[in-house]
Nucleic acid binder design. Structure first.
Lengths: 232, 232
DNA sequence: AACCTTCATATTTTCGAAAATAAGGCTATA
DNA sequence: TATAGCCTTATTTTCGAAAATATGAAGGTT
């Protein structure tokens, strides 16, 4: 019943596993993505164990994992710090992600079956429920939106064959999330457009129009990153 | 004095840090790369703590890290297993690595300075000391060769500007190491050719001939991977 | 004053015992 | 015989105390 598949880097399936205590790794990553801890902040064990109510060992494992994913840096003997952010890194991450995602969506369109299609429709619907909300109410549920947004883009490429391609694009997506966060404060002009962009990406993908889907995704990501750079 | 730089994924600098006890992470990774543990083997804590003489917590952190790098898989509640190998994965890893490495070498050639050049020459010399040895003696020092070989290829691209590009190529290189191991047993015909290939790659790079260096590297990697596939 | 040494404090890192969980075997029941 | 439930064993996962290490301050020497 509890499927709990053997996982990849950045897989969030572990969270869904409801394995007793709330997943520290996920909560900590969310807090870093949400800028609860500013870049370069030292993450002391004394504070963190109280905040997340876990033992030192468990916390250390989570931080070590986040270091692999690039969210924190670690210096032997000095402990962990939140990784810095910069415009140049955002540009690089954006380029890598777009390159991966375009290849992934082509593979997905080539190999995806009925389950893949159905999942896209389902996940998109859940995303649109939040994106269709008026400005105020949508902001209240921003953290939920982040999750749905991630699930949507993951669903689109989930049928891609390359395991490493999927893995690498997921690492980059998580990094982008961190920068994407700054656009939360952006004027609602952008928010409305995203609604349609996601719809168009879904339609092109289900129509198996690889060229169109590929281009729409690139535009979608690049727009968001450019917004983020301005606000950085 | 103890520099111990803040590190990236797969960085082996931590090992050099001589921080008291021998780095479990490195030893464990080496053992997996060297097929001391076969793919799919369960890695039980009871055995591992005895083998590496470290506590459970420390071991768990190392295994968790290796999971991020893709050398082991982890299933909640079931523990850790050595990741499987397959021809199709080798092909995918090879393609990703070559794509990264070709871009990285171009950047390195464009931005590398005198220190970069000097380091390449130095590291290549240390590699050639082993590669010039007769068959028997070279095999004795195979694990050392693995290290020198890694250092050589890393030195070539070390001046590349993209931090993530470097990081991603390093992850892929480590994965290739695992498959490369099977060619250890290959007849010496290949071993001799590698000596010259490395020399040519170095020369082309120092001559700042990006096209040539790029092509030589691709050939070099693809040859090795094809050998590995035959022996898999 | 600048520099080195020493000591005290703060923080990280390691470790193994204890709790939690999964796997396998046994008996009772249909 | 097959199935379900329980008990026992094997293994993982968590936790905080203790060891190791770094930081910073005070005092002494050139």
């Amino acid at each position: 019943m509890t499927l709990e598949s053997s996982n990849l880097i950045g897989s969030r399936t572990s969270k869904a596993g409801a394995n007793g205590q709330r997943d520290v790794l996920t909560r900590l990553r969310t807090d870093i993505v949400s800028s609860v801890f500013e870049p370069e902040t030292r993450l002391k064990f004394a504070d963190m164990t109280k905040r997340y109510d876990v033992g030192i060992g468990t916390l250390r494992e989570a931080l070590s994992q986040l270091a692999s994913e690039g969210f924190v840096t670690v210096e032997a003997g000095k402990g962990f710090k939140v990784a810095p952010v910069s415009a140049s890194e955002l540009i690089e991450i954006t380029d890598h992600f777009i390159a991966f995602e375009k290849r992934a969506v082509r593979e997905a369109i080539a190999y995806g079956g009925e389950d893949w299609e159905t999942n896209i429709v389902a996940v998109h619907h859940r995303l649109s429920l939040i994106e269709g909300l008026p400005w105020e109410r949508r902001m209240e549920r921003h953290s939920e939106w982040v999750e749905r947004h991630r699930e949507f883009h993951e669903a689109i490429v989930s049928a891609c064959q390359g395991k490493w391609l999927f893995r690498l694009r997921s690492i980059m997506f998580d990094q982008l999330d961190r920068y994407r966060f700054v656009t939360k404060r952006a004027p609602d002009g952008l928010g409305g457009r995203k609604f349609e962009e996601h719809r168009d990406i879904m339609t092109a993908t289900l129509d198996r129009d690889a060229d169109l889907a590929s281009n729409l995704i690139e535009q979608h990501i690049r727009d968001t990153s450019e917004q983020a750079i301005k606000l950085l």
